[in-house]
Design a binder for these strands. Structure first.
Lengths: 134, 134
DNA sequence: CTGGGTTACATCGAAAATTGATATAGTTTA
DNA sequence: TAAACTATATCAATTTTCGATGTAACCCAG
């Protein structure tokens, strides 16, 4: 299991661009995956308290990375989503990670790559299971 | 590749104990893995500037999680390592992750588990490669 | 062995992030 | 429809982080 933690360490630190904080990147990433979210729902994924998230979101709206519109079905709530620019950042970071990882994977043998490919489906399953019983 | 990011998201957020900051946990984790380190070496792994790390370390020494002794080979440097208590925290968090992950893996089929097992060696290789060409 | 340049870490004041407590306004329910 | 609840905002205080700079130890050319 230690291997996973080590690899994770590598993976987490791969992106070379150090401009946004961990919290910011996590918010952008989450919004990039799961369509428009209400503050409260976003709160569940992010390791921040509500006031911190409110102010972080406010700043990101200022910076033009996040859009905010009232939830039509609930007058109290706000629906948050990425702007084009926000999506752009997420995409570019993703591309960055893919590139870095590819560079590593290219150094594996064919056999090793095959094993890795087979794992993808298992990882998907694991992630699903985690989502279910959460 | 998206799968890896998703799984990573699950993995990162698994531990239920929310008491130490990301920076703190990262420092403890790093020291747990790589014996005594000098501040400067620790700095390379942690996403902090030197003054921030200095003060974080000072606090952790205060809290009794980290030991600090002068480097015998360099009068300017300090060697940092975990105390028994610090090691304890790292271990308990590790155990926590293992437990959570095991709970997930238990829900896989035998075939899926086999694939996962085969992957471990590849992950090791990947991590090594990453360390090399860093 | 010595003075200039470099490296390791500490200190300081300021800016930024985060928090708990609390306010406000919309929603649900009995 | 009033009481209870929920979603988000605001505020003051605390904590984290940073850039600039200081200090002491190291290294090396002369």
């Amino acid at each position: 299991m230690t291997v996973i933690e080590d690899f994770n360490g590598v993976f987490i630190r791969l992106p070379g661009v150090r401009k946004y904080s961990f919290s910011t990147l996590s918010v952008l990433h989450t919004l990039g995956r799961s369509g428009p979210l209400r503050l409260t729902d976003l709160l569940k994924t992010e390791q921040l308290k509500q006031p911190a998230l409110t102010s972080l979101v406010a700043k990101l709206v200022q910076d033009g990375l996040i859009k905010r519109r009232p939830d039509p079905t609930d007058g109290r709530a706000m629906l948050l989503s990425l702007t084009r620019e926000g999506r752009q950042i997420v995409r570019s970071r993703h591309a960055n990670r893919v590139a870095n990882l590819t560079r590593l994977v290219d150094q594996l043998t064919d056999d090793e790559r095959a094993v890795l490919a087979a794992t993808m489906h298992v990882l998907t399953r694991l992630t699903e299971i985690a989502a279910e019983d959460a």
